[in-house]
Structure formats: C-alpha cells, structure tokens
Amino acid sequence: MNIHYEFPLEEVGYSFGFLDEYAKKEVRRTILKAICIPGYQTPYASREMPMGRGFGTGGLQLTLALIGPDDTLKVIDQGSDDSVNAVNLRQFVQLTCPGVGVTEKLEEATLIQSRHRIPEVALTEAQVLVLQVPYPDPLVVVESSEARRKIMHAEADYSRLLVKLYEDIVHFDEITISHRYPTRINRHYVIDPSPIPRWDVPKLDQSPALILLGAGREKKIYAVPPYSVAEPLVFDDVPFRVEDFRDEHGQRRACARCGAINSFLDEYSDDNNAKIYQCSDSAYCDGQLAQHQQREVKG
C-alpha cells in the first residue's frame, strides 16, 4: 500500500444521525411494526454503534432513527442526566445531530432516552420514551432456544414462566424478581420491560406517551403503544409489590436532598457508614428542591 496515502476527507465525516439513511429506514419500519404488534420483539439488523454493546446501542439506534432538528432530547441513566453513560450518549447525539436541542428538564423534552428508569413525573402525548434493553426476552430464564421461545410467545404460552414465579413463592414466600419484571402488554405478549425497578412498571400501563424498547446486541425492537394495558405477571393471591422504602418503624424514607417521600430512592453509605437515601431521578429531585426554595423565598 502507498505510504503517502492520506484519508479522503469524506472518510472521516459523518452524516446527520450517524447511521446511513438505509439503516434508519429499516429501524423506522421495524418501529412501526413493533407498535402494530404491542410487546412483540421485532427483529432488525442492529448496526454497530461507536459505543459498546450493552451501553445503549439499541436505544441509541431508535433515537437516531427518530430524531430531527425539531426535537429536544433528554438522556438519563440510573435516573440521572449527569451519569457518565448519559453524558456520553448525549454528547454523541449532539455531535452527530447538529441543531437538535438537549435538556435535563423532563417537560422540555420531546424524546427521552433512558437506562433503568422511567421518570417520576408522568410523560405526555408529545413525548416518546426510548428504553435501553440488555435482555429483551423474559422467557430466556425458562427456555434457552430462541426458536422455541418465538413459538411460546406467539401462542402467548407463559405457563413455564408462571411456574417459575410459583416456585419462587414456594421457596421464599415472595416473588424474588427485583427488576425487569415480566409484564404483559395488551393481554398477549409478555415483555422484559428492561431493567427498570418494579416501582416503574405501573407507569407502563395506559401511558399517554409511546414507549419504545431497543435491544441492540440482541437485535430486537418492541413497543408499548400509548394507552395500552400493561400488567405485571402475578397470581391472584400474591399481589405485585413495588420496592418498599419504609424504615424499621414503618415510616416512609425521605430523600436526603429534596425531602420527597414519593420517589424511588438510591441507597448508599457515607464515610461514617451511615445509610443515606436520595432520589434516583435527579431532574425530579432538582425540581422538588427548586419548589422548596421558592416557597422559602415567598415565606
């Protein structure tokens, strides 16, 4: 090869939205079918993105196929806009989609890409939520062959999954699934709602906003359309329970920062090994804090 070879300029430039237009069209067609078949894991030819599989490449391909110059994007990871991975994804979109606005305020966003959380405040019809998915198939715990899982899904045959839940109750007197709680959409397909806590599962039901889920490594896209029935898989006599944030006296724990007693809390220890609780949704926490400060100023 020629030692003096220089890269042609076009080889280092990227077009709007990083992906080529054919890739975007394929993702778009897949999204529409995913909406038409709620909860069905629609296969697509997932492209390699410049971040690792497992870092949100599925969500990112959805975002890049959707986004246009009129959009305002919010990216969150673990509930926080400033988590390293959220920053990384947001910077990538800003780099490859000139003109797109970004925000940390939920109410300003038209597109929200998230890993592991659904925002505390209800979404609106003017918003689309994109969730990043590591494992799309809830049946994988009972059946390792994808070919067989596809048939079970088609027939809405979740008996083996229910047996698994039942065995849990027999062993532990409690369903031990903590996050990624299997949820039935539109009374047919059961989805893995991505590693959101159980706290966020009820937000899937009758959501005014479209919720799209993208699994880049497993090459699947699925959707919870707006105003759809989303029911966590349970037994009549064992209710679905969200995370319990009460202390040993039965008192609801409050966020150490904003004082909220209605949000999902992160738990950690300070240097003296004392437990501290704080809102996982940082924008919500900021909003609560701002309201308090306003009240103090007025008072």
């Binding site: 497992g54 673990q78 992160d266 996982s280």
Partner: peptide, 28 residues
C-alpha cells in the same frame, strides 16, 4: 463486538437494579 461490549457494560452503574435486588432480599 457483541460479547466484549456486554462484558464491559457490567462496569456501568447498576444502582437502581441493585437497590431493587436489596429490597427483594430484605423482604425475603
């Protein structure tokens, strides 16, 4: 690309899911 990406992603924060795990274990 698939396997190394997924192995690496375990380095990312998993606070929320771990919180949820602790909740289940404590209840149990």
């Amino acid at each position: 690309v698939d396997s190394m990406g997924f192995a690496s992603h375990y380095k990312m924060p998993h606070y929320v899911t771990f919180q949820s795990d602790m909740d289940r274990l404590r209840t149990t």
